[in-house]
Design a binder for these strands. Structure first.
Lengths: 124, 124
DNA sequence: AAAGTCGTTAACGACAGGGTGAATGATTAA
DNA sequence: TTAATCATTCACCCTGTCGTTAACGACTTT
């Protein structure tokens, strides 16, 4: 049985979205400042349709938002949105709490059994 | 031309590895405790070969490590490794610094344009 | 020793995802 | 108005990835 798999959670979609190198690059680029769609396509040497689809994925996961340029309504300006990143970091910290627990248990154990070998006497 | 794409960084591989729902599930499951490969295959209702390949991906990105069971050398026990998670969190926090900058800029701007200053220190 | 178990690699089919060029809608420039 | 520009969606191809079964090596059990 599977304890947890019906997790269509936002985390899953966020990770899928960020898994693609192009989209990862777009995020890294948007860290500097907002960019128009065409500028992003050019920056990644990619046809506008291809970039448009990537941006749609990022939009659907809430990683970016689209705004119409104030001076030229044809231009769509994209910028980062914080929520999915915060959620992903939350999951990460949750996972990392694993080692805090391990560490706590180890410390407690070490305190009880000073001078003995550390846990994990497995074959290497 | 492409300004930034030669980022074969471990982050990319880590995200790709975590993008798959099965592998995400494996990680979530290993949070509880280490598991033998076969147990994981059963837990996800998947053939051993399929799970074996997922585990290989996770191994190659350093997300898990394999150990031979002390009592039965046929059994491979998998457990989480912290490094890739820490690296991913590092990248996330880097991305999130974006909004800190935004906030700082906003605060500074508000301080210049208005007589009242928001609470807290200022950026330099 | 032979048989059974655990996990891997190998070979193959099926599907999703990402790329392109053409066509469409919306806006701006001549 | 007509032409040009920005970005999208549409219709395809094509590579990569995920899943299966079969075969193999390693170890345990009887």
């Amino acid at each position: 049985m599977n304890t947890n798999m019906a997790t269509p959670s936002a985390i899953d979609r966020t990770l899928s979205a960020l898994a693609d190198p192009t989209r990862r690059g777009v995020v890294d680029r948007l860290r500097q400042r907002p960019h128009p769609a065409g500028e992003l396509a050019a920056a990644f040497d990619m046809s506008p349709p291809a970039m448009s689809r990537h941006l749609r994925v990022l939009r659907q996961t809430g990683l970016v938002e689209e705004n119409v340029d104030a001076d030229d309504a044809r231009v769509r300006v994209y910028r980062l949105r914080p929520e999915p990143f915060a959620a992903l970091r939350g999951w990460l910290e949750e996972v990392e709490s694993f080692w805090e627990d391990q560490l706590g248990a180890f410390k407690a154990h070490a305190e009880r059994t000073r001078g003995t070998k550390p846990p994990g006497g497995r074959k290497s």
